[in-house]
């Protein structure tokens, strides 16, 4: 268990100039962040090395964007807010997939080595997709972030229904890769794990700006699940 709620706003649509959960934002100034709590000791050096933050899933606060700072260690995460005018550039997961910078310098780390095969399988779905997590951060920043045990975290845009049979087929195709591939579908109800959809439980958990929610059907927003009495 942990305290921080990772991620960002739900929904696959991308209005012009907007930011979505998992987008990476380049800071215009090192002091642009408004921390939620006093910054941990590792944060300033890390931000000098890579002035890049990840858009989180959180309820909006005026125009400020909820972001997270990734440290070198798994437990090093730090929540902050960023004014839109302090964003120098935005890098989306889809842009990282299209740029395919992992082809320029081959890595033996499984999560990076799996990208070529994952690219073929995910491109064939016709859906928008891109690497997130440690792999996305390393591709965008050039700062080593992937470890030997890192998963390949992938975001897939799923504005229209992905049937459970298709989810199972995609999961099976990705199962043979060099690294474990952790796919999150961005549905109208929020972020849903591909593995969960494939298992067809009565309800699935969707990650939303207001926290996780159980929903009967992520493509029928409003079809909420009954809570226990």
């Amino acid at each position: 268990m942990s305290h921080a709620e990772p991620g960002g706003r739900a929904g696959p649509a991308r209005p012009e100039g907007s930011v979505l959960p998992h987008d990476l934002l380049v800071l215009a100034r090192p002091d642009a962040l408004e921390p939620e709590s006093p910054p941990p000791p590792w944060a300033p050096a890390r931000l000098r090395l890579a002035p890049l933050v990840v858009v989180r899933r959180a309820a909006p606060r005026g125009t400020a964007i909820p972001v997270g700072v990734r440290g070198a260690e798994r437990r090093e995460r730090f929540a902050a807010w960023l004014a839109p005018q302090a964003v120098a550039a935005r890098v989306t997961p889809e842009e990282l997939a299209r740029a395919a910078r992992w082809r320029e310098r081959r890595s033996r780390l499984p999560a990076l080595a799996a990208l070529d095969a994952a690219f073929e399988i995910l491109a064939a779905t016709g859906l928008g997709w891109g690497p997130v997590g440690a792999v996305g951060f390393e591709l965008a920043s050039g700062v080593p972030s992937v470890s030997a045990t890192s998963d390949l975290d992938v975001l897939v845009r799923a504005p229209a229904r992905v049937p459970a049979a298709s989810a199972r087929a995609l999961l099976a195709a990705l199962a043979g890769l060099a690294a474990r591939v952790d796919v999150q579908l961005e549905t109208p109800a929020g972020g849903v794990a591909l593995a969960e959809l494939a298992a067809e439980p009565r309800t699935v958990v969707a990650r939303t700006a207001a926290g996780p929610r159980r929903v009967a059907d992520p493509w029928q927003p409003g079809a909420g699940a009954e809570r226990l009495p």
Binding site: D153, A193, A195
Partner: peptide
């Protein structure tokens, strides 16, 4: 059996 192996 519910849930998934994955960060968070």
């Amino acid at each position: 059996h519910v849930g998934v192996v994955g960060s968070g």
